[in-house]
Design a protein around this nucleic acid. Structure first.
Lengths: 158, 158
DNA sequence: TTAAATTCAGAATTATATTCAAAACATAAT
DNA sequence: ATTATGTTTTGAATATAATTCTGAATTTAA
């Protein structure tokens, strides 16, 4: 399930670097950048997909264009027993919930939510969160402005 | 800079929905899904890019495959004057820093960082963060396990 | 050192991207 | 209503790319 047993060489890392920056790069352009035959590059890409090194090709959309300007972080205490993630799993099913993390310290979960505005967030909390058992308390932090937001990894040279 | 003045119709939303799910869908397949001519679809996609509705096509890479398993959230107080974001802008330049948010409440910034392990995080804090002036204090929350992590938006039907 | 497996290049085929002109459609103004 | 204007769509043409396959080269392991 993790990164164990997958060995990525220099070429793989270059592919990942190029595709992380632009997922729609053509295989032909990839091949040109890497100075390899398109067929060889394609084989590697397929292998990276198949080994789940590549999880998804996705499009980053301007949230403002869809009127989704509210971001909030919510920390939650839950009464899930040790070794049980039930609340987290239920939270993860909600599409507006972008991230669910189990964290060290007092609170059990830290989640990130994106909605159109604060009243939609309230609706979400009232209608969806409230249906999840074992949530004991929540503390919501509203984001005023986002300066940077991406998930790109730092890819080593080698 | 925001979502104002951009009007997206049903077809645009479908394009965004399909491309958010799979950025590498071919234009031909897009056209088939939408039952439109490829040329018409291409025009729309170009327009969405040009209007910055589409920000980027990116590849989600398994962090484990690159040995980047540590996620931390750090809240920071900074001495930036009101209306100045200097610390945030400097933080945003650090590649391991994936998110920088200005938040309401006591702390000024909430940032999300991804590194290979806790000692690399310590290095980062010692070497990079410490060089940023005006950071008064930090409180780091280590993620033990991530249940969900994506940035996909909820795209309305219409 | 050989055998097996992996990776690669090149050619052939199939499919796709892209461009363009013309038609269709929508909008606003007269 | 009717014309004019601008936008969007289509369909055809052509340029480019994806994909498959075979054999050669390289690597790995026995």
């Amino acid at each position: 399930m993790n990164g164990i047993d997958i060995i990525l060489d220099k070429v793989d890392l270059s592919i990942l670097r190029l595709m992380q920056e632009n997922a729609r790069i053509s295989n032909a352009d990839l091949a040109r950048e890497l100075e390899m035959a398109p067929s060889a590059v394609l084989e590697r890409v397929k292998k990276l997909e198949q080994k789940s090194v590549i999880l998804q090709y996705t499009t980053r959309i301007n949230p403002g264009a869809l009127q989704q300007n509210l971001v909030a972080f919510i920390s939650m205490k839950a009464a899930d027993g040790l070794g049980s993630n039930n609340a987290a799993i239920e939270l993860a099913k909600i599409p507006e919930v972008q991230e669910v993390h189990c964290i060290a310290g007092d609170d059990c979960y830290l989640i990130k939510v994106r909605t159109s505005d604060s009243s939609t967030l309230m609706d979400l909390m009232r209608n969806s969160f409230s249906k999840i058992p074992n949530i004991l308390s929540t503390r919501t932090t509203i984001v005023l402005e986002t300066v940077k937001e991406q998930q790109q990894l730092v890819i080593p040279e080698k």
